[in-house]
């Protein structure tokens, strides 16, 4: 188990090195940052001095190593637009995005798994068909469009919920959270619902497929023969057996939901990371783009690592298969 974990960790570090190189080359080598920093009418000697100050006269690999050295020490540079350290900027926006993402993924799992189990348990019922039709819609309909319709319905037409912003927040553990106030919750509901729909569809499908397969196995036949109630079978056998793929997807989806939050945050003016990256792209705020991408890559690699190790812990076959 330890050998497996160490091997995975080394792989993750290698991946991060490759990713940081790609991001660095992508953002810094395509296009000239000097065009942004130096006015076109600046004389040659000033231009040369600025180029030297930013180290842009050195070979690319030296620049990359310097950049890597700074990043390892937590220095992502300063934002061109906000004129503050990028890391502070990102950490300041992170709680809003985390709150939204967690609300969405938790909601999707808590609603999606029971619906999926039902649809897999009684696949021929009308209710199951409706659940599956909804899940197809959830997969197909673009997130931004659902967001618009939610705003149009609940904010513009009915006037029940606010159309954007975070609402009132309360400080807890040094950061502001919306979900602790009624006003904040009302602001959280629509964006969380918007972000959750795709995951909900996925959870439904996953739970349904797993349930359908397990209902046909000897485990269930035997449990029935032993006289267990159907609800007991569903709760103790089916739920337990479909838990592994659901845990995996839950972890992986946490990351991809952060990515989808870009769209939802833009529509609902939710002041999180996604809005920050869109703003930094439109303003060509390169240090923010690079930092965001590297942190997202780090997040993904970490999630993959944790899921892999958890998987090995939950399922001994994986552990044996991979270390052998």
């Amino acid at each position: 188990m330890t050998g497996f974990a160490i091997q995975r960790l080394l792989q993750a570090i290698a991946v991060m090195l490759v990713m940081s190189a790609i991001v660095f080359l992508g953002v810094y080598a395509i296009g000239d940052p000097m065009e942004l920093l130096i006015p076109p009418e600046a004389p040659q000697d000033i231009r040369r001095e600025i180029v030297a100050r930013f180290g842009l006269d050195r070979p690319l690999w030296v620049q990359y190593l310097t950049f890597l050295g700074n990043v390892v020490q937590g220095d992502f540079g300063r934002s061109f637009i906000y004129n503050m350290p990028v890391l502070d900027l990102i950490l300041g926006r992170l709680p809003a995005t985390l709150e939204l993402t967690l609300a969405a993924v938790l909601g999707a799992t808590l609603i999606g798994v029971p619906l999926g189990i039902y649809a897999g348990y009684r696949p021929d019922r009308a209710g199951a068909r409706i659940v599956m039709a909804l899940s197809i819609l959830g997969f197909s309909v673009p997130t931004f469009w659902v967001g618009l319709i939610l705003i149009l319905t609940f904010a513009v037409s009915l006037g029940w919920l606010p159309a954007g912003g975070r609402g009132a927040t309360v400080e807890l553990l040094g950061t502001q959270w919306s979900f602790l106030t009624a006003n904040g919750l009302s602001h959280l509901l629509l964006p969380a619902l918007n972000l959750a729909l795709f995951k909900l569809a996925m959870m439904i499908r996953l739970a349904r497929a797993g349930t359908r397969e397990i209902m046909l196995t000897d485990t269930v036949q035997f449990a029935r023969a032993a006289g267990l109630a159907e609800t007991t079978i569903l709760r103790h056998h089916v739920l337990k057996l479909i838990a592994i793929p659901i845990v995996t997807v839950f972890g992986l989806e946490l990351g991809s939901t952060l990515a989808f939050a870009v769209v939802t945050e833009t529509i609902f003016s939710w002041p999180g990371l996604g809005k920050l990256i869109i703003d930094s792209i439109t303003n060509l705020d390169r240090p923010v783009m690079v930092a965001y991408l590297i942190l997202v890559a780090l997040l993904f690699v970490t999630i993959n690592l944790v899921v892999d190790i958890l998987y090995a812990a939950l399922d001994p076959r994986v552990r044996r298969g991979r270390t052998a």
Partner: peptide, 9 residues
């Protein structure tokens, strides 16, 4: 890595 993020960047 989510496709949307890649396409966006």
């Amino acid at each position: 890595f989510p496709a949307i993020l890649l396409a966006l960047v």
